[in-house]
Amino acid sequence: MSHAEAIPAATVVVMRDGGGGLPELLMVERSRAMSFAGGALVFPGGRIDPGDHLFTDTHEDSAARVAAIRETIEEAGLALGLDCDAATLAKIREDLHAGRPFAQLLAEASLALDLDVLVPFARWLPYGLPHRVFDTRFYLARAPEGAAPLVDGSENVRLCWITARGALDAADRGEAMLIYPTRRNLERLALFDGFDAAMAHARRFPVETITPFVESRDGVDWLCIPEGLGYPVTAERMDRAVRA
């Protein structure tokens, strides 16, 4: 599959201050019925729709930011870069679920998006998978004050606020499933004591497209990513890696 055939997608790591001194991340558990990452714990996000290009410039990053904001509303009922009350947000979410265009809903409510609330963090493009391949841009965002997300109950069956280390530990205990990119990103996010530290770190590393590759080490295959992109762990045994 060529780069052009990959499905453009976007996801966002929403962070809030945690009671234990470590930031908590908003994660959703995918329905096991979903063909991609069924049953996995992931960050809110999804594919970039044609309508996400309608009220931005032609740069793919802008459409990806719109998609990340739209998907977070759809999946978690959480508004990023959007100044509106709870009733308006609930109506927009309901209309999105009904298939109405996001740009039209914002125009009707006289609302504009602040795309700058999203900080570029990573871009992953895995190949060699037995299903559709996604070219996914990851962003960081600070949780809005008083955020009270609600699961959509269709694509996702549960949502939670959890620390990066907490999610990794849950997976190691067999209580959660993490696909390879999510695990690597959680290991990176576990380095930070808050949103500001994560944002500063992200800005030190220009976003490069990450395509995992297989490397044999002493007769054992490892799934690897390049060094120097901000990730503390860059390899995992193939027989332990979850590739959706």
Results as ranks from 00 to 15, higher is better:
99 G>Q: 02
137 R>Q: 15
218 D>T: 06
212 P>H: 08
209 T>P: 03
240 R>C: 10
56 T>E: 06
193 D>P: 04
6 A>N: 13
47 R>L: 14
200 A>D: 13
19 G>A: 15
84 C>R: 05
225 I>C: 02
65 R>P: 07
54 L>T: 15
149 P>Y: 03
206 P>T: 10
71 E>Q: 15
227 E>Q: 12
231 Y>S: 01
109 A>I: 09
172 D>S: 12
176 A>H: 06
108 E>H: 05
17 D>T: 09
238 M>D: 03
201 H>F: 12
73 I>G: 09
155 E>K: 04
8 P>A: 05
87 A>S: 09
2 S>H: 10
152 D>S: 05
25 L>M: 12
241 A>V: 14
64 A>V: 01
30 R>P: 00
170 A>P: 04
101 P>H: 08
100 R>T: 02
178 L>D: 07
103 A>T: 11
199 M>P: 01
123 R>K: 14
78 L>T: 15
144 P>S: 04
225 I>P: 02
96 L>R: 09
17 D>H: 11
21 G>W: 02
90 A>L: 01
217 R>M: 02
171 A>F: 10
11 T>C: 10
10 A>R: 04
55 F>Y: 13
230 G>Y: 15
125 L>A: 07
165 R>C: 07
56 T>W: 14
179 I>F: 09
45 G>Y: 08
149 P>Q: 03
160 C>K: 01
180 Y>R: 02
208 E>V: 08
219 G>R: 06
68 A>Y: 03
121 F>G: 01
66 V>P: 13
61 D>L: 15
51 G>R: 11
80 L>M: 01
151 V>Y: 01
45 G>I: 14
90 A>V: 04
72 T>D: 13
137 R>H: 12
224 C>K: 06
134 F>L: 14
112 A>N: 11
21 G>T: 11
163 T>M: 06
72 T>V: 07
62 S>R: 10
